[in-house]
Simulated scan of single mutants.
Amino acid sequence: MVMNGPKVFRWVLDVELLWPTPPDGTNGLQPSAREATARWASGKESQYALSLLTPGEQAKVLRFYRPSDAKLSLASCLLKHRAIATTCEVPWSESTIGEDSNRKPCYKPSNPEGKTLEFNVSHHGTLVVLVGCSGGDVRLGVDIVRMNWDKDYATVMKEGFQSWARTYESVFSDREVQDIAHYEAPEHDDVQDTIRAKLRHFYAHWCLKEAYVKMTGEALLAPWLKDVEFRNVQVPLPTSLVVDGAPEVNLWGQTCTDVEIWAHGNRVTDVQLEIQAFRDDYMIATASSHIGAQFSSFKELDLEKDVYP
Rank of each mutant, 00 (worst) to 15 (best):
G253P: 06
S93F: 04
P109W: 12
D306M: 07
N232P: 04
Q272T: 01
K115F: 04
H264N: 15
D258C: 00
A165F: 09
V129P: 04
L303N: 04
K299H: 10
K60M: 06
S110F: 10
F161T: 01
P91K: 06
P67Y: 04
T286V: 15
A70M: 06
R66C: 03
A41I: 01
L251Q: 13
Y203L: 13
G132I: 00
K80E: 15
C133I: 00
N120E: 01
P23Y: 01
P67C: 07
T86K: 13
P22T: 02
H205E: 03
Q30G: 00
T21N: 05
L221R: 09
R267G: 00
C133M: 04
G43L: 05
K226A: 02
V171P: 03
W262T: 00
A204G: 03
A287E: 07
G5N: 06
E118M: 04
G160S: 01
E16M: 07
V121T: 08
V129S: 08
P109T: 07
P31T: 00
L74C: 12
L72P: 06
D258F: 00
H124Q: 13
P22G: 02
E89M: 10
E159M: 13
V131M: 05
L241I: 02
R267L: 13
R39M: 02
L140W: 12
K7W: 07
E118A: 15
I97Y: 04
D189K: 15
Q192C: 14
H81Y: 10
V243H: 11
F64L: 03
D24I: 01
D150T: 12
M157G: 05
A287C: 15
H201N: 14
Y308F: 15
M147T: 12
R63V: 03
I291M: 15
G132F: 02
R196E: 15
G217M: 05
L78T: 09
E260I: 00
W149H: 14
I195D: 11
A33M: 08
K151V: 13
L241W: 11
L237R: 15
N266A: 15
H264A: 11
A75F: 08
V129N: 08
S73P: 08
S51M: 11
G253H: 01
